[in-house]
């Protein structure tokens, strides 16, 4: 009767996520200047990556699913890049 136990990867991912959460909150209080934002978003991305790869099982999925999952992010990148370009280059 072991079939109800969660796979080790899930438990590991969960613990890692909680650890990263603690880390990001702690780092937010370090005075890093503009670095704070970068750190927060980097850790956020790692956490999101863990959720996607392990909870959403992307690591077991084929190319097509990966493309579909990536398409949203790719277009999000376009929106953020070209959208903020105007505001960053105004004189």
């Amino acid at each position: 009767m072991t079939e109800w136990r969660p796979p080790i990867a899930l438990v590991g991912a969960w613990l890692a996520l909680l650890a990263l959460l603690a880390l990001t909150v702690a780092l937010a209080y370090l005075p890093l200047g503009a670095g704070n934002g970068v750190v927060a978003l980097t850790i956020g991305t790692i956490k999101a990556g863990l959720v996607a790869a392990i909870f959403m099982e992307l690591r077991h999925r084929g190319g097509l699913t990966l493309i579909f999952a990536g398409a949203g992010l790719f277009w999000l990148g376009i929106l953020l890049w070209l959208g903020s370009m105007d505001f960053l280059t105004r004189t």
């Binding site: 005075p31 704070n36 927060a40 956020g44 909870f55």
Partner: peptide, 26 residues
């Protein structure tokens, strides 16, 4: 349903970083 739930989770991870974390060190 699980995919949807995880996605909502991912959104929150970013909202958390954008909403709660800035400006804590100053």
């Amino acid at each position: 349903a699980a995919l949807y739930w995880h996605f909502v989770d991912v959104v929150w991870i970013f909202l958390f970083a954008l909403i709660y974390l800035p400006g804590r060190s100053t």
